[in-house]
Design a protein around this nucleic acid. Structure first.
Lengths: 115, 115
DNA sequence: CGGTATCCAAAGAGATACTG
DNA sequence: CAGTATCTCTTTGGATACCG
């Protein structure tokens, strides 16, 4: 472990990933590629338009995703992971893997309580 | 990328790591080993007693850290990373590494704006 | 020393309605 | 279609005081 707490940049990564919907948005774009606003919304049941817009704006601001507007009627806006954004994939993968283990861990703990 | 967004467990890992102070607490315990409440507090200027207690309780509940109370006066309580908690280290390391890159990325972006 | 309890401000998040 | 705007509720986080 060579991380100096004083110089810790973990917060920076957390700042990008945190937000109830950001990981799922990123995972969606990584998996499905370029997607329209409405496609993203459909794939995230429960999210409101306001929240989706907000999260997308924040990710765009950090250069994690690209936003392309087609000046036409009806409007068409496409979102995709930027090259830079792809560098987050290892983190998402590591978190997913750990999350799987954690699910098992919690199950074991529950079973112990029952007995 | 084999992560199915529908089965996504990234949130679980995020749930553990999120909180203004959790990463720095974990980093501290990983680096310094067992520490007393007051030592932890000293190494995190700005944190309040209430917040430190709260974060520690949450981490303890998820079995990420161990809490040992010595029944003596004045009280002594020691915190340490659990075996299970150590499995989070790769994630913290990955986030730290990414955070370092991100710091550079932001600097470049600023320089471009200035010119 | 290592906490609780209480109060309060700020940020996050949801519902709903409206618009170019 | 892809958003704003507004209002409200909930969650976080900070300040302060007190306790075993």
């Amino acid at each position: 472990m060579k991380i100096e707490p004083e110089l810790c940049k973990v917060e920076d990564a957390l700042g990008i990933l945190v937000g109830k919907w950001k990981p799922i948005i990123l995972l969606n774009l990584l998996k499905e590629g370029t997607q329209r606003f409405s496609e993203l919304k459909r794939s995230m049941p429960g999210i409101t338009q306001k929240m989706l817009t907000k999260q997308l704006r924040e990710l765009e601001k950090e250069d994690i995703i690209d936003r392309v507007v087609y000046p036409q009627v009806p409007p068409k806006v496409e979102y995709s992971i930027s090259e830079y954004g792809k560098s987050l994939e290892p983190i998402l993968a590591a978190m997913h893997e750990w999350g799987m283990k954690h699910t098992l861990h919690k199950r074991k703990k529950m079973e112990q309580k029952i007995q």
